[in-house]
Nucleic acid binder design. Structure first.
Lengths: 253, 253
DNA sequence: CGAGGTCTTGAAGACGATCAACAAACGTGG
DNA sequence: CCACGTTTGTTGATCGTCTTCAAGACCTCG
């Protein structure tokens, strides 16, 4: 992992800090709730880019939180085509839904070198029995995922490629900022154009041309795995991005 | 769950029956849980096709369960284009996520004449404090919605129009069967081609041609708002439909 | 029976896919 | 540190799917 020009923290924060920060963006946490989270954490595990953290059809006994790196939820079709349904960044619970869904309806794949920590489903069940408020925040976390999915559907169905890509960039920026992984309007962007194509439902060639369009419009720069948003307001207007669905505002829940 | 093979019931079932049936497809319910559901029900309300049950930006104090008719979650863009992110049928909680999201990130629109019942968020909170197992089933209900969204993303991103439509038909059939709204392989299908276009992210003209393709392949017939699946196995193969994500099997949750 | 919505079809055009070739960047071992 | 192979990015040409525009048929319901 390279030391980049972007000001990533010297060492990644502990899981419960990362997770607590995320849940706190929805509502404040009590001491016992933080303690409960802390207790549930199990050891970290590393994955190389391209590896499956979880595979379609699995029935994992735990859920995983990303500590470092990016991951994606992906489905692969008979002809080998892959669709990434959502992209995940540090602090994201990549398969919290596995707790109740049991059988995974998709894979979770490392899109860059990743480190995760686990929370057993047994302990999640304990939380759901003993900590209703914390449970609601975990539930909310999965509801935000669903909101991300809905936005993706709108992007795929009704936006042209450039608008769709711009929207994804806006969303990732807001989410990265919420976990302190952006410096100014720049952030590390570890995805190849081929991966981006699988996320957007486009061909790699067209992703290349779509990025060029955003460059030529002076909306972004992307080079050496660093993405810079050159004009946030114009990018938001261009993509019709509305961050409501991310629910990044504290309210009693 | 054995299909009775009979026509739709003469009068629609009471809300708590419909909802209990749905949640029971995930796991069995205790008497107190059924009692709790029963207590939370508030009066029914009717909507004409095209009306909003809930509008984007609303902060409703209750969530709605469809008793009769079809509804859709929809977002509208600046140019007036509409994208329906999911279609809902009787027994579906159309905006359970509003309980924790608070501000609606999309509208819910009646796609046919609808009747709904309400459950106040206050009572949902009470359930989440007092009935952890029932809460997990409600949570699961929203997770299945997210799975439906993910499947839609795959359909939009990586399937041709005909495959995508076929997939949607397979999904709707399975969901309708689960609430006894299919007789054999036929069911009432109240959507116009224009509405279907907004759900699939296509133009109405192309939806027309796509339906024709499925007809010509002898996969479906669609006439007088009645859809018949002529060859289930071929339709499943053609659309690569895999119902895992619907989680319609009982397990301890 | 008329009117509006819905369905159907044709023709032309746009957006994105595919195929092919090459350039640039990266990483690994010598 | 350079050489070399592999992955990633870039560009052009052609093709196909889906969109748009337009017109007419059909259906449904007052």
């Amino acid at each position: 992992m390279s030391a980049s020009g972007v000001d990533a923290p010297a060492s990644p924060p502990a899981l419960h800090v990362l997770l607590a920060r995320k849940l706190r963006s929805y509502d404040s946490l009590s001491e016992p709730e933080i303690g409960a989270l802390q207790q549930t954490i199990e050891g970290a595990k590393s994955f190389a880019a391209g590896q499956d953290l979880v595979s379609e059809g699995d029935r994992p006994g735990y859920s995983s939180v990303l500590i470092e790196g990016w991951a994606g939820r992906s489905k692969t079709l008979a002809n080998g085509a892959r669709q990434i349904t959502s992209i995940h960044i540090p602090g994201d619970f990549v398969d919290l839904h596995g707790f109740l869904l049991h059988k995974m309806d998709h894979s979770v794949v490392a899109l860059s070198p990743c480190r995760i920590a686990k929370i057993s489903h047994e302990k999640l069940r304990w939380i759901s029995e003993e900590f209703p408020h914390l449970t609601r925040l975990l539930w909310l976390n999965t509801l935000v995922d669903a909101g991300i999915h809905r936005n993706e559907i709108v992007g795929m169905g009704r936006l042209p490629a450039a608008g769709h890509l711009a929207q994804l960039i806006c969303e990732l920026y807001e989410r990265l900022r919420a976990v302190d992984l952006a410096s100014g309007y720049a952030f590390e962007f570890p995805l190849s154009q081929a991966v981006l194509a699988d996320a957007l439902g486009l061909s790699p060639v067209h992703v290349n041309r779509t990025i060029r369009e955003l460059r030529e419009r002076n909306l972004i720069s992307l080079r050496a795995r660093t993405l810079k948003i050159l004009d946030w307001d114009k990018l938001v207007t261009f993509s019709q991005f509305d961050p409501t669905y991310l629910s990044q505002f504290q309210e009693p829940r």
